[in-house]
Simulated assay, not measured.
Amino acid sequence: MPLTFTLDPAVTPELRDGLLDLWTDVTNAGGAVGFVAPVARDAIRPELVKHFAAMSEGRTRLLVGFDEEGQVAAAAFLTHNTHRLMAHWLWLYTVMVHPRHQGKGYGRDLLAAAADAARGLDGIEAIRLTCRGGLGLEHFYGSCGYKEVGRIPGAIRVAEGDDRDDIVMLLPLT
Results as ranks from 00 to 15, higher is better:
residue 101 H to G: 06
residue 71 Q to T: 07
residue 135 L to A: 11
residue 149 V to A: 12
residue 87 A to D: 08
residue 138 E to T: 00
residue 107 G to S: 11
residue 14 E to W: 06
residue 73 A to P: 05
residue 23 W to Q: 00
residue 150 G to D: 01
residue 42 D to Y: 12
residue 93 Y to K: 05
residue 96 M to N: 09
residue 111 L to K: 07
residue 72 V to E: 05
residue 103 G to Q: 13
residue 168 V to W: 13
residue 158 V to R: 09
residue 139 H to L: 11
residue 123 G to I: 03
residue 16 R to T: 05
residue 139 H to S: 13
residue 41 R to L: 08
residue 96 M to H: 06
residue 21 D to V: 08
residue 34 G to A: 08
residue 116 D to T: 15
residue 11 V to M: 15
residue 112 A to I: 06
residue 83 H to A: 07
residue 13 P to S: 13
residue 80 H to F: 03
residue 16 R to N: 05
residue 53 A to D: 15
residue 146 Y to W: 15
residue 152 I to V: 13
residue 6 T to L: 09
residue 21 D to C: 03
residue 89 W to E: 10
residue 51 H to R: 09
residue 81 N to E: 09
residue 158 V to L: 06
residue 85 L to C: 14
residue 170 L to N: 09
residue 167 I to S: 05
residue 44 I to Y: 12
residue 151 R to T: 02
residue 130 T to K: 09
residue 85 L to S: 12
residue 172 P to Y: 10
residue 79 T to Q: 14
residue 18 G to L: 06
residue 128 R to L: 05
residue 103 G to M: 13
residue 144 C to D: 15
residue 147 K to L: 02
residue 60 T to G: 01
residue 71 Q to V: 03
residue 156 I to S: 09
residue 159 A to Y: 00
residue 25 D to I: 06
residue 4 T to V: 12
residue 126 A to C: 11
residue 12 T to P: 12
residue 171 L to T: 13
residue 30 G to C: 05
residue 74 A to V: 04
residue 109 D to C: 04
residue 16 R to L: 00
residue 174 T to M: 00
residue 156 I to T: 01
residue 48 L to K: 10
residue 13 P to W: 09
residue 158 V to W: 00
residue 76 A to G: 02
residue 148 E to I: 01
residue 8 D to F: 00
residue 159 A to W: 00
residue 156 I to E: 04
residue 39 V to P: 03
residue 50 K to R: 15
residue 105 G to I: 12
residue 141 Y to S: 15
residue 62 L to V: 10
residue 136 G to N: 10
residue 166 D to C: 06
residue 144 C to R: 14
residue 77 F to V: 00
residue 130 T to A: 11
residue 92 L to N: 08
residue 167 I to V: 15
residue 83 H to F: 05
residue 73 A to R: 07
residue 99 P to V: 04
residue 79 T to R: 08
residue 110 L to H: 10
residue 122 D to A: 12
residue 148 E to V: 14
residue 153 P to V: 01
residue 87 A to V: 03
residue 74 A to Y: 09
residue 108 R to F: 07
residue 102 Q to L: 13
residue 118 A to Q: 01
residue 37 A to N: 11
residue 38 P to L: 11
residue 105 G to H: 14
residue 136 G to L: 01
residue 51 H to Y: 13
residue 109 D to P: 00
residue 24 T to K: 04
residue 122 D to W: 07
residue 113 A to M: 14
residue 92 L to V: 14
residue 171 L to K: 15
residue 76 A to S: 14
residue 2 P to Q: 12
residue 20 L to Y: 07
residue 173 L to T: 05
residue 146 Y to M: 11
residue 36 V to D: 09
residue 155 A to T: 01
residue 29 A to S: 15
residue 71 Q to Y: 06
residue 131 C to D: 00
residue 143 S to K: 13
residue 27 T to W: 05
residue 2 P to E: 04
residue 21 D to L: 03
residue 119 R to D: 08
residue 136 G to S: 07
residue 154 G to R: 08
residue 140 F to S: 08
residue 120 G to V: 06
residue 117 A to S: 15
residue 97 V to N: 04
residue 55 M to I: 03
residue 136 G to Q: 09
residue 84 R to S: 02
residue 18 G to E: 03
residue 155 A to D: 08
residue 25 D to R: 14
residue 2 P to R: 08
residue 11 V to T: 13
residue 115 A to H: 03
residue 91 W to H: 10
residue 171 L to M: 15
residue 70 G to R: 07
residue 143 S to W: 04
residue 102 Q to F: 09
residue 96 M to T: 00
residue 23 W to A: 06
residue 127 I to A: 07
